[in-house]
């Protein structure tokens, strides 16, 4: 199996997000950077698939030179190759990103043969455009389904089949994608492993293939980021002890949910 994972370097989620003074970026000074969570799970899934079926995982990112950190992180948890399409650090719109990634994948496939599976995150944690994976898969003629929280590879069925589960209320849908295929995965598909110390040290030696892109900007461009207006809620304290249960049930009755 040859698997390609696309990952994005994003300010680490988990805390209040501030914007830089010029409004053009997130102030990551308190946050640090991480791999967008869906994609971190994508790398884990790809590594697990190769652990079961053999093969290699290539991780591809588009971003500033520092995005090499995310490639190394992926290598530290088991990915084999890293490719960086370097930008100047400005936010690339989804169309431009998709073209650049498509070109990069075409180049990699021309050199070393096709990938059996392309793994994307469902959407990036920061800009959340919900489209890059779909655009790339379409351009490459690969079937893609988003929202995937379970993957089984059946290498024996025809040219190979990816059985993918998509979570819906109360259960899941099953898709069967003929390989070569693509998926957009979501956090929850697995609990990604942490790197080991040896993994981290080995990842320092990862040779990162750098590529440039001449993709043209698309139609969407960032004007400014800002925090939503915060609505101030007057919180009514129903009590400071379990005796407040009576008041709670009054509220529930009032709402008609009891």
């Amino acid at each position: 199996m040859r698997i390609l994972c696309c990952v994005k370097r994003v300010p680490a989620p988990g805390a209040k997000i501030n914007v830089t003074d010029d409004g053009l970026a997130v102030d990551a000074s308190h946050l640090g950077f991480a791999t967008s969570p869906h994609e971190e799970c994508g790398v884990e899934e790809a590594v697990q698939i190769t652990e079961r079926h053999g093969g290699e995982v290539t991780v591809l990112t588009l971003g500033p030179p520092e995005a090499a950190d995310q490639l190394r992180y992926a290598a530290s948890v088991g990915a084999h190759h890293g490719v960086l399409v370097a930008t100047d650090g400005s936010a690339w719109d989804p169309q431009r990103t998709a073209v650049a990634l498509t070109d990069a994948i075409r180049g990699l496939e021309a050199a070393d043969g096709p990938f059996d599976l392309l793994v994307f995150g469902n959407e990036s944690a920061d800009s959340g455009g919900f489209q890059v994976g779909v655009r790339v898969a379409y351009a490459l003629g690969r079937p893609i389904v988003n929202g995937i929280k379970g993957i089984e590879v059946d290498a024996d069925a025809g040219d190979g089949v990816v059985r993918a589960r998509r979570e819906i209320d109360g259960g899941f849908e099953v898709y069967e994608l003929p390989m070569p295929a693509a998926v957009g995965v979501k956090e929850g598909i697995n609990l990604p492993r942490y790197p080991t110390m040896r993994g981290r040290l080995a990842s320092k030696k990862l040779e990162i293939a750098e590529q440039a892109s001449d993709a043209e900007p698309g139609g969407q461009s960032l004007v400014r980021l800002h925090r939503p207006r915060e609505t101030v809620t007057e919180t009514v304290i129903l009590g400071n002890s379990p005796e407040a249960a009576s008041a709670v049930v009054d509220v529930l009755e009032e709402l008609g949910v009891v």
Binding site: P13, I17, V19, V26, A125, D126, S127, G128, Q220, S221, L222, V223, R224, L225, H226, R227, P228
Partner: peptide, 11 residues
């Protein structure tokens, strides 16, 4: 953006 914790003005 960020699931709604941040807003983007886009052109």
């Amino acid at each position: 953006q960020w699931g709604g914790s941040l807003l983007e003005d886009a052109s």
